Amino acid sequence: MKFFLPLSVFLLVLTGYVRAADDPAEGIKTATRVHEIFEAKCLDCHGPELPRPKGKFGYVLDLKRVAENPEYIEKGHPEKSELFKMVFNDEMPGEDANVPPLTKDEKDVVKRWIELGAPEAPQIAGDSSGASANKSVEAKPQMPVWKKALRWIGRMHPVSTHFPVALMFVAVFAEGIAWWTRRDSWLQTVRFLVILAALGAISAAALGWINAYFASYTGQLAPILKWHRWLGTGTAVWSIVCAGLVVINECREGSTERQRFRGALLLGAALVGISGFLGSALIYGLDHYAWN
């Protein structure tokens, strides 16, 4: 009898806890809070009104759509959900966002929302992103001037890539003319183009690493960024190899050295093309060359 009473109390408490966890009211309340958090912290980069939201993720306030995307949410398992991982590790909002990272309490709310199965928030009448953001967002600490300057410099990466891309492909075209005409003037032109391309590739790769530091990509775009960054770096290194081959040796037409350089140049142009494709995929998606 003495044992039965404490056990009964324990079971009643446990039952109440389970019921509370399954209470639809908690799901609605948590989802509403998550909506407010996302509205305050995520619209800067993922707002639906943005022409090019980061990571093509411009529906952050549509909790139902977010929850149904397995790349972002695994219902009931926040530790396996990519969105929560990035929020927990302060990868979102990114360094270039105008809002501070989520607080511990906000992270706990997002975690609980996923544990509850990522329920949908009720329609909020007269919802205004600006009003909610002003209520829930504290002032972001001012970014140091040197960091702002570094971020601004990194934004030059997309522009800088056009220089080595164009030069490498023109160098291949010029190499074809040199092979056809057998004229030394074209061999010198190829040499000039490849050296400039190598210098431009080094600059583009350096700017790319800076730009990536301040960027935040989720879902399938996260590995694309990784591949683009490392392949771009490898391409810059290979362009230096091409420049070295054409500078160290005379590389006269018909020589073994010229054939070796020509093979390296063709491979370098292919690497430039693949790197450029992955870079544009970060903005337009992997299917941006689809016919339809």
Rank of each mutant, 00 (worst) to 15 (best):
F3E: 12
P6G: 06
P6T: 03
L7Y: 08
L12F: 10
A20S: 11
D23F: 05
T30H: 00
T30I: 13
A31R: 04
T32N: 12
R33N: 10
V34W: 02
F38M: 13
E39I: 06
A40N: 01
H46M: 08
G47T: 01
P48Y: 08
E49G: 03
R52L: 14
K54Y: 04
G55H: 01
K56C: 00
F57L: 14
G58S: 11
G58L: 08
V66W: 06
A67Q: 02
N69V: 02
E71A: 04
E71T: 01
Y72F: 12
H77L: 11
E79D: 12
E79M: 06
S81H: 04
F84H: 07
M86N: 10
M92C: 05
E95P: 02
N98Q: 14
N98W: 07
V99K: 09
V99T: 14
P100T: 08
E106A: 06
D108T: 09
V109P: 00
V110Q: 02
W113G: 00
W113A: 00
W113P: 01
E115G: 01
L116F: 02
A121E: 08
P122Q: 09
I124F: 11
A125K: 15
G126A: 06
S132P: 03
A133E: 11
N134H: 12
K135H: 11
S136Y: 12
A139T: 15
P144N: 05
P144V: 02
W146L: 13
K147D: 15
W152A: 14
G154I: 12
M156C: 10
H157N: 06
P158F: 13
S160G: 11
T161A: 13
H162V: 15
F163E: 05
L167F: 11
V170T: 13
V172E: 07
I177P: 00
W179I: 09
T181L: 13
D184M: 09
D184E: 13
S185W: 11
T189L: 14
T189N: 11
V190K: 02
L193T: 03
L193S: 05
L196I: 07
A198S: 15
L199C: 14
G200V: 06
A206M: 08
G208C: 12
I210H: 00
Y213H: 11
Y217M: 05
G219Y: 00
G219S: 12
A222H: 10
R229P: 00
W230N: 13
G232K: 11
T233K: 03
G234K: 08
I240F: 04
V241K: 07
G244V: 08
G244C: 14
I248P: 01
E250G: 14
C251K: 03
R252P: 01
R252D: 15
R252A: 15
R258H: 15
A264I: 09
A264L: 09
A269I: 07
G273R: 01
I274D: 02
G276C: 10
S280L: 09
A281N: 03
G285V: 00
G285I: 00
H288M: 03
Y289H: 03
A290F: 04
